[in-house]
Design a protein around this nucleic acid. Structure first.
Length: 587
RNA sequence: GCCCGAGUGGCGCAGCGGUAGCGCGGCCGCCUUGUAAGCGGUAGGUCAGGGGUUCGAAUCCCCUCUCGGGCUCCA
């Protein structure tokens, strides 16, 4: 490494290495396809990519060929040389390269920057390393389709992704992390642990919860409903469909129709599956009279809803077409808004603590000023809601980032983004301030002045949809659920047939006490039963043999591999009950 | 939805023009067992579905469905 490179921060150096590698890759691809058109090739988090317009799809063999050619360029150690030309000259150089021409047209300056290494000349601002032998350790990972400029109406290009790190050791570590992510993947663990499944005949994006997955879900639902009850929420039940008129009134029909299943037409009405629960809850609020004294009204429901997600967007449990949201709508006065917002935030933080979510950040999702058509038209309302959100957030000690363009169609929101096993962020919690729907539905409360006033609605989801939550939990714990969440908390393991009755009677006691246990009454050896329980990540294995049967004991083994020896059955039961409280640490 | 790749018994895989195989699991039997796999036997597949090419297709081609990696979109 040169002194100049060494003087840089590691981040700056990596950026240059990765960006330089993308040029080296483009050179290799052009050697193979001289007629190729090439687009852009930036550095990304873990490496780099470059987009190409090629005469045929790339194969894995092509990637090997590209990598080989890249190594040759690296070996030569060609210098990266920058030079500047005026736009006219640049257009001549990149004649026949429509993507480059478009990029040139988009540059404000009259002068554009070019970089050359060996025979390869590219439109590029840099920066780069000095020579091609300084790009570090890389591996070409995959070929993917990507729209030119991320616009689905524009041509689909072929993108080659590469991973790149400073040293082979760093690269190996990264590849190892990817391997680890695959090991934690909720789709794989969901099958191995018997949590959920899907069936071609049922349909894409329509998961089926197996008994063990359903057990975990029930615990989560019970936990959150109880937590909400303590915080003054009232739970309701509402149907999963409604007349299309309801969504015309709410505005979903105008702004959200692409994500809705088409209407079912029968007799004289059209019914649609609901994509959101708010209209139903709003209708409940609107069905009665409300005094300012009874606000806020907090209506909650584990609301099942249906969204038509494009087929290519579906993914395991984290992106589905039928989902149940931990939903609630808070109807309050303007002067209560901030407290209610902070109350929801507090609930979110408490839930994350209990669930063990650590890696998350706060995103203030605002309207995109450049594309206001996507949203309901009411500038004053948007400005006020966004101002209030900022104000409320600034009152907390939380850091957050503004994200223009991420708002919901009816209002801005605070999203809590959680990082999953594959390193991708997804929204788990959301708090939305809504001045719009109260207007559309003519909602009112009677104020102290005896006059009708308009309430504000806070839409909020705390633990997300049960589907996405399940996916996160599986990945967070790599399937090793804490005792309070484990679908099976203990497996009783009788050593021989003569211990079966004892094991069953003991298990009965545990079940009556509210615990989730099983008896492994198979014909295998004890050690095979232990192995099975280990693979299923059952927290406790309770061995029943001659030594235990006499004294009312259970030989306790933890899934951590610890043999705790015989313990009184009652002591084990108490311990399990203690660890079954929401958020309890498992030993 | 778009680009690329993949679908073989419940699961993991082999076979890639000439009559469908392995491991795990399942079932039956034997063993009666002490902290991560006891032994033996046996059943189970319209090779995702449909169409085509061929004397012959799991293998080649086309369409559909599902899954995966991305893009766009999103809880």
């Amino acid at each position: 490494m040169s002194a100049k490179l060494e003087a840089m921060s590691k981040g700056e150096r990596l950026l240059r290495m990765r960006h330089s590698a993308s040029h080296v890759m483009a050179q290799a691809v052009l050697e193979i396809f001289p007629m190729a058109k090439w687009a852009i090739g930036p550095a990304i988090d873990t490496g780099f990519y470059y987009d190409f317009d090629l005469p045929r799809p790339l194969t894995p063999e092509d990637l090997e060929d590209v990598a080989r050619r890249m190594q040759e360029t690296v070996r030569r150690g060609d210098a990266f040389a920058q030079r500047f030309v005026d736009k006219e000259e640049a257009r001549r150089i990149f004649a026949g390269q429509p993507y480059k021409i478009e990029l040139i047209d988009g540059i404000a300056d009259e002068r554009v920057s070019l970089y050359q290494q060996g025979p390869f000349l590219d439109l590029c601002e840099g920066p780069h390393v000095e020579r091609t032998d300084q790009i570090g350790a890389f591996k070409l990972m995959s070929v993917a389709g990507a729209y030119w400029r991320g616009d689905e109406r524009r041509p689909m290009l072929q993108r080659i992704y590469g991973a790149l790190f400073e040293t082979q050791q760093d690269l190996d570590q990264h590849l190892h992390q990817l391997e680890e992510a695959r090991r934690r993947d909720h789709r794989r663990l969901g099958r191995e642990l018997g949590l959920f499944t899907s069936a071609e005949e049922v349909g894409a994006g329509l998961p089926l919860w197996l008994p063990k997955g359903a057990a975990v879900r029930r615990i989560l639902e019970t936990y959150i409903v109880e937590e909400e009850r303590r915080r003054g929420y009232q739970h309701v039940y509402t149907p999963h469909l409604a007349k299309v008129e309801l969504y015309q009134r709410s505005g979903h029909w105008d702004h959200y129709r692409d994500s809705m299943f088409p209407p079912m037409v029968l007799e004289n009405e059209q019914l649609v599956l609901r994509p959101m629960n708010c209209p139903h809850h709003i209708t409940i609020y609107g069905a009665g009279q409300h005094s300012y004294r009874e606000l806020p009204v907090r209506l909650a429901e584990l609301g099942t809803m249906y969204r038509y997600e494009k087929s290519g967007e579906l993914a395991g449990l984290s992106r589905v077409r039928a989902m149940t949201l931990n939903d609630a709508h808070i109807f309050c006065r303007l002067d209560q808004l901030k407290d209610e917002f902070l109350g929801v935030l507090d609930l979110i933080r408490e839930a994350y603590r209990v669930l063990g979510f650590r890696d998350h950040w706060y995103r203030l999702s605002l309207r995109d000023p450049a594309d206001t058509e996507k949203y309901v038209q009411n500038d004053a309302m948007w400005d006020e809601a966004e101002r209030l959100l900022h104000e409320a957030m600034d009152e907390t000690d939380l850091e957050y980032v503004d994200a223009p363009g991420e708002a919901s169609f009816y209002g801005p929101k605070l999203d809590v983004q959680v990082r999953n096993a594959t390193g991708r962020d997804e929204t788990v919690s959301t708090i939305q301030i809504d001045f719009h729907l109260p207007e559309r539905f003519g909602l009112e409360y009677i104020g102290a002045d005896g006059q009708p006033h308009r309430p504000v609605i806070i839409h909020r989801g705390v633990i997300s949809t049960m589907e996405r939550l399940m996916a996160f939990l599986i990945e967070t714990y790599a399937g090793v659920f804490p005792v309070w969440l484990a679908p099976v908390q203990a497996t009783f393991i009788p050593i021989a047939d003569r211990h079966l009755d004892y094991a069953r009677a003991a298990a009965r006691r545990f079940i009556e006490a509210g615990l989730r246990v099983e008896v492994d009454d198979g014909q295998e050896r004890m050690s095979a039963k232990i192995r099975n329980a280990q693979l299923q990540k059952v927290p406790y294995m309770l061995v029943c043999g001659d030594r235990e049967v006499g004294g009312g004991a259970l030989a306790v083994r933890t899934r951590g591999g610890q043999d705790l020896g015989p313990m009184p059955a009652e002591a084990v039961l108490r311990r399990l009950l203690e660890e079954s409280k929401p958020g309890a640490e498992s030993t």
